[in-house]
Simulated scan of single mutants.
Amino acid sequence: MSYQHILLAVDLTDESAQVAEKAVSLAKQGATKLSLIHVIEPLSFAYGGDVPMDLSAIQEQLDEHAQQRLSNFGNTLDYSVEKLYVVSGHTESEIHRVAKQDSVDLIVVGSHGRHGLALLLGSTANGVLHGASCDVLAVRVSDKKSD
């Protein structure tokens, strides 16, 4: 199956390269558009909105830093990137929103190996899978120290 537009969701950790490798490989097979997304959960989420100070300046710095890191990450890929998205909000819903907005037909996301109930997918990958209106590929990422 050939996809027209792949959305690669990355958390910008070292493991993002493993996920990107799979997305780029798929994109090359069909000369597919590739876009990147990184979602920042707003600081107010961490504190339940009950923060006695204005966090907007700090949030803006986090956004700018993430934009630079995502741009740098995109430049390391062996493939041309169509669009870069740094968005704030709940990770799964923002990935779904951008995928729908841009007519994405495949979302690629990393999944950590877990124990117990989360063995199949990590919580983010599971959330993306269950609300997506397109195909989702969860790429198993491994901790390089244990491999």
Results as ranks from 00 to 15, higher is better:
G131H: 08
A27T: 02
L106V: 12
D63N: 12
A9Q: 00
V81Y: 09
Q4L: 12
L77D: 07
L77F: 13
K33E: 10
L7M: 03
E92H: 03
L117I: 15
P52N: 10
V98K: 14
H38W: 06
K83W: 06
E41N: 05
D102I: 08
L77R: 03
A118C: 14
K145D: 11
H90G: 13
Q18Y: 02
V51Q: 02
S146Q: 15
H38L: 09
S133R: 06
L77G: 12
E82S: 12
G122K: 02
H115C: 11
V109W: 04
V51D: 05
N126G: 09
T32W: 01
V104G: 11
T32S: 11
S103Y: 11
V136N: 03
I58L: 05
V108P: 08
N126I: 04
E82I: 08
K33R: 07
T91S: 10
A46F: 04
V108Y: 04
V81I: 14
L62I: 11
S25A: 07
A27H: 03
Q18D: 02
L34H: 03
H96S: 13
A46Y: 10
E15C: 05
H65E: 15
F73N: 01
H115L: 09
Y47T: 13
A118T: 15
D78F: 06
T91N: 06
D11Y: 09
L55S: 08
D105H: 03
Q59C: 02
T124D: 05
V86Q: 03
G110K: 02
T13W: 06
V136K: 04
Y85L: 10
E60I: 00
Y3Q: 10
Q67K: 15
F73S: 00
T124Y: 00
H112C: 11
V108E: 01
G49S: 01
T124I: 14
S71H: 08
S56A: 14
L106S: 11
V10A: 10
Y47S: 12
S16N: 00
S35H: 07
